[in-house]
Amino acid sequence: METMNWISNVVRPKIRSFLKRDTPQNLWIKCPESGQLVFAKDVEANLNVIPGSDYHMRLAAVPRLKSMFDDGVYEEIALPEVPLDPLKFRDEKRYVDRLRDAKTKTQLVDAVKIAFGKVEGVKLTIGVQDFDFMGGSLGMAAGEAIIKGMETAVAKKTPFVLFASSGGARMQEGMFSLMQMPRTTVAVRRLREAKLPYIVVLANPTTGGVTASYAMLGDIHIAEPGALIGFAGPRVIEQTIREKLPEGFQRAEFLKEHGMVDMVVHRREMKATIARLCRILAHSPARAA
């Protein structure tokens, strides 16, 4: 061992730095669909869509908001605080620890962010559900944020656009999580009473209590290409019926075919599409070219 020391002291750092130099993290991204390797920077510059295969990767809340609002400028809406950990929950880990980790990892307070600003000149309130925060799960904080977003739209008399992405209920909050279904639906009804457009964009994946409440109650449903959208997750269905699911089942295109979404829109067209729809619904003239 003694003799090994001078070797590792002298040689190892060199090897380490050599390895480091050649493989910095996230330089390359492998397309989950085609398997091709692409430059991470190219993917990032393309709104997290893989150039070539057009595979839509997840887009975090902040870049999503920046991609929508004119010049990337928006006002973030303050969200109400909610009681943390009402069940004093722990599974393999304490829920409060999971929450803290998710906050550190994503730099978010919880899964939903609400912002106000202009999209091609149209005033909009936008909500984004970030899948990276505990699977975008719907707990008290996310539910309260969705409600706040819809209330903000009513107060500011703007349409409400929601980018949904979630595995469903925040299990660690038990029945408080389930109660976000009727609670958010109350807010959807208020948006409707105010006759303000509600546009839902379903991103990959959106399932469970989120699709079974506010995410399926929009005036217009847009899905991102390839997004998994459904009530039950594919694994649960396979376990129930004990057979393999058909190719493309529960994907955006499948949902359109079955009449559940109005259109499947590429991320690069999202901003223009939403602005156009809002203008028509508001009886505004088309945007000057």
Binding site: M216, G230, F231, A232, I237
Partner: peptide
């Protein structure tokens, strides 16, 4: 949770 239920919009029906 089944194929037909998903095809016919279980989530939307519940909502």
């Amino acid at each position: 949770p089944g194929i037909g239920a998903e095809e016919r919009g279980q989530a939307e029906a519940i909502a």
